[in-house]
């Protein structure tokens, strides 16, 4: 379990990192908690790894106007601890606390996790629920924004081009006041999820989103259910959730559907107690 030979390039500036990224076989390492094992298993075989976690501009957590911006290289632990002088949405701090183990959280980063796009990981579902926008920069230094809800194309597939890298994650500051519920079912503490349910409702913003994660695909949005919950302020029945999931996920086994249904109903119950 040793990687193929590669060079490790720790970028001094974002510009140099982007430039290096524009060559075949180069890849970003931003914490290494997923790419590390994949390197050792030789599932990824880069010629160059570009380290970006030391770049200050990727480390910032700050508020610009009514937008909260979190640098892509901010670790899960920093979000968990919330000690950067900027209030983070309580949902984010709650989710961060349950990612893997503290040792992983000390190294793993928000941007790294989103770019890796593991369907069973926490951030892809959470950021979809919170309507996050990803700030993405290319080799020429041009930035674009893409909503998380469309960024992930499928398991381990995203809208990133070879020369692009995530620099920050943005969301409305007001998301800090949203009502939210998050429930994760996994075999043991720190393990990847078998099912995730998430709900975020912000009456003033007229925002309601229901997301099912760990489906073996990109997080599943259930807009009709979200609208209905916001309109009626009642939780859908287990039977309704089950038939909705059966419609959206016809390939899911009965056990998988049971777990997704339970995670989602438990997440909703945190917003609308039964």
């Amino acid at each position: 379990m040793k990687p193929v030979p590669f060079s490790h390039n720790i970028a001094d500036t974002l510009q140099l990192a982007s430039k290096a990224l524009n060559t075949d076989g180069s890849k970003i390492i931003a914490g290494g908690q997923s790419i590390g094992p994949m390197l050792n298993l030789r599932l990824v075989r880069p010629t160059t790894l570009i380290g970006v976690t030391r770049l200050e501009e990727l480390q910032k957590i700050h508020i610009i106007g009514d937008t909260l911006s979190i640098g892509a290289a901010v670790t899960h632990a920093r979000i968990e601890d919330g000690i950067d002088g900027v209030d983070l949405p309580p949902m984010m701090r709650h989710v961060a606390r349950s990612i893997a183990y503290r040792a992983v959280r000390n190294k793993g980063t928000l941007g790294g996790s989103l770019a890796h796009a593991d369907p069973a990981a926490d951030w892809v579902t959470t950021m979809t629920a919170l309507d996050a926008q990803l700030v993405i920069r290319d080799a020429r230094g041009k930035s674009r924004r893409e909503p998380m809800a469309s960024f992930m194309r499928g398991a381990y597939r995203t809208g990133l081009q070879q020369d692009e890298c995530i620099t920050a994650v943005e969301m409305p500051v007001a998301m800090g006041q949203a009502l939210w519920g998050y429930d994760k079912i996994c075999r043991k503490v720190g393990e990847f999820a078998d099912a995730i349910g998430a709900i975020v409702i912000h009456p003033d913003l007229k925002y309601a989103r229901v997301v099912v994660g760990a489906t073996e695909d990109a997080p599943l949005l259930l807009p009709d259910m979200a609208r209905e919950i916001a309109r009626t302020a009642t939780a859908p029945s287990l039977g309704d959730i089950d038939s909705t999931l059966a419609t959206y996920l016809p390939g899911a086994s009965r056990v998988k559907r049971q777990l997704l249904k339970t995670a989602l109903s438990r997440a909703i119950a945190k917003v609308i107690p039964s």
Binding site: P37, L41, R187, K188, V189, G190, E191, F192
Partner: peptide, 13 residues
């Protein structure tokens, strides 16, 4: 073939 798939109990379990 990895410890993400072969689940061993940890202290919390």
């Amino acid at each position: 073939s990895t410890l993400a798939d072969y689940i061993l109990p940890g202290p919390a379990e």
